[in-house]
């Protein structure tokens, strides 16, 4: 049984960020930090992704909570962030740190797969593959997970796939 201690999340988060920064800079990895509400994203260049992931795993971030991808068609890029946290390291348990990379929006966007580093990324990478069409190099089993192949080909979560929403002005002529 675990008694609920009062725990200050923001200090844990600060500690986790320090730890992650140290881990990355000790490997000589260049990164930039972006702040969100309740988490930090560490953005690295594509070639540092695997090395950065390995460093973070060694620093105690043992699983992927969410593989978050956002499409920015105007800037022609995807922002792909592995949101990580830790179960086993009590000091930083629960603090969410993102390891991210920006992927150009080309014909066949691809990034190296991190399934070898974090098993928990396996299904989420398959999901991103079907929804955004981003290929993960070295993924052991890259197939659509949730969708049937024809639907997956639509790449539904990209911004250029538009789902129409009815609105109250529908059918009302603009003038008069």
């Amino acid at each position: 049984m675990l008694q609920a201690p009062s725990r200050d999340y923001s200090s844990v988060l600060g500690l986790a960020l320090e730890k992650a920064k140290n881990a990355l800079s000790s490997k000589g990895i260049v990164f930039s930090v972006e702040e969100g509400k309740g988490f930090y994203d560490i953005i690295v260049e594509r070639e540092y992704l695997v090395a950065g992931a390995t460093a973070l795993k060694e620093a105690g971030f043992d699983h992927v909570v969410s593989l978050t991808v956002t499409d920015y068609p105007k800037e022609k890029k995807f922002r792909l962030v592995y949101h990580l946290t830790s179960y086993l390291d009590y000091e930083i348990a629960g603090a969410i740190i993102g390891l991210g990379v920006e992927v150009p929006r080309s014909d066949r966007p691809s990034v190296p797969s991190l399934t070898q580093v974090w098993r928990s990324a396996e299904f989420q990478e398959r999901e991103v593959y079907e929804f955004f069409g981003i290929e993960f190099e070295g993924h052991p089993d890259l197939r659509p997970l949730l969708l049937t192949p024809p639907v997956a080909e639509l790449r539904p979560l990209r911004k250029d796939f538009v789902v129409r929403e009815e609105n109250i002005y529908e059918g009302v002529p603009k003038s008069g």
Binding site: A4, S6, R7, G94
Partner: peptide, 23 residues
Amino acid sequence: IGYDVRIVEPYDAYPELDFEVPV
């Protein structure tokens, strides 16, 4: 694994309530 969001990032009234997390 003693992990519960109600403890690691307490939200709502959970910080004020008295409960245990079974492990």
